[in-house]
């Protein structure tokens, strides 16, 4: 059944190669060592990102399938929100028919790359469950960083092939409004990169809980539901009642979907836009730190238990 695919670069192979390479560094002086170390790290991350990128190419069919599903859901959601806007007399929480159409199609376009709810590969949690993760921690490459780099590579690969057709279909069928100036797209790109990172780091933290729980599947589906909802996947956060909106903004989830969409669509501009990006940066730092703290505790637990 499974087709053998040559050319699939394993994430672990890259780590292996790079860590062997770094181990061979023998600089003549301390400053050179630091430089060489940094260069090696960057080369590693670059390679990891490329590996994440290449791995996706073997899943071409799955990607086409994913686009189809995205588009189907796009049509349904568009229909719902159009009816809502119409029922509200043409504007709903600042959205018109066109802008809410943009919202729907951009969110459908981005969910693949942003990997909302960690619905993508379960490689990390699988490795934690069967103990292979211990090998990852013996490598001189930072685990969280390396998995993040791979994920960014993956996201880069899926962004255009999955995102563009979705937006195109939306534009050609029901119509949507996109800004004509370049600024929203540039800032939007930054925002998307940040969003992917936040999404990954949240998922990473959830997976790391696998050190304590034997079966994380229930937890992960819980996470998937809450995060998608609060990120504005079902309805824009702008439509939430006050208290729910406050709750949502106390979590990193709106920064995963709502923020990049608002920026790209031009719904939020100027200093407001920069502010939301700043909030994203904050969440990146926060989720990164939480992930690292959990990892430290988890490893300590492993040592104590003789994992």
């Amino acid at each position: 059944m499974a087709t053998a695919t040559a050319g699939l670069t394993s994430f672990m192979e890259v780590i292996h190669a790079e860590s062997n390479r770094s181990a061979q560094l023998r600089p003549p002086y301390p400053e050179g060592y630091v430089l060489a170390f940094v260069r090696a790290q960057m080369r590693t991350y670059g390679q990891l990102a490329r590996a994440g990128f290449r791995r996706q190419s073997s899943y071409r069919l799955a990607m086409v399938a994913g686009v189809v599903t995205n588009i189907v859901f796009g049509f349904i959601r568009a229909a719902i929100l159009f009816a809502a806007v119409q029922s509200a007399g043409g504007t709903l929480a600042g959205y018109t028919r066109d802008t809410i159409s943009t919202y729907v199609w951009l969110s459908q376009a981005l969910i693949g790359a942003v990997n909302i709810g960690g619905s993508g590969s379960t490689e990390l949690s699988d490795r934690i469950r069967n103990g292979d993760i211990a090998v990852d921690f013996t490598r001189p490459v930072d685990v969280q960083g390396s998995y993040l780099a791979t994920d960014l590579g993956r996201a880069a690969f899926t962004l255009l092939p999955r995102g563009l057709p979705t937006v195109l279909v939306g534009a050609l069928t029901v119509g949507l409004a996109l800004p004509s100036r370049p600024w929203p797209y540039l800032l939007g790109l930054v925002s998307v990169v940040l969003a992917v990172s936040i999404s990954f780091l949240c998922g990473y933290a959830v997976s790391i809980l696998g050190f304590w729980l034997v079966e994380t599947r229930g937890l992960r589906s819980l996470y998937m539901v809450t995060s998608s909802f609060l990120a504005g996947l079902f309805v824009p956060v702008g439509l939430f009642p006050g208290w729910l909106s406050t709750l949502a903004h106390a979590t990193p989830f709106p920064s995963i979907l709502q923020v990049p969409i608002d920026i790209i669509s031009g719904h939020v501009v100027g200093t407001e836009a920069v502010k939301t990006v700043a909030v994203q940066c904050l969440w990146v730092v926060l989720t990164c730190l939480i992930g690292r703290a959990l990892t430290r505790d988890g490893l300590r637990k492993l040592e104590v238990q003789g994992g």
Binding site: T3, A4, T5, A6, G7, S58
Partner: peptide
């Protein structure tokens, strides 16, 4: 048996 060569389009 389908085998995909690295970097090739056809199998």
């Amino acid at each position: 048996v389908h085998r995909k060569g690295a970097g090739r389009l056809r199998r």
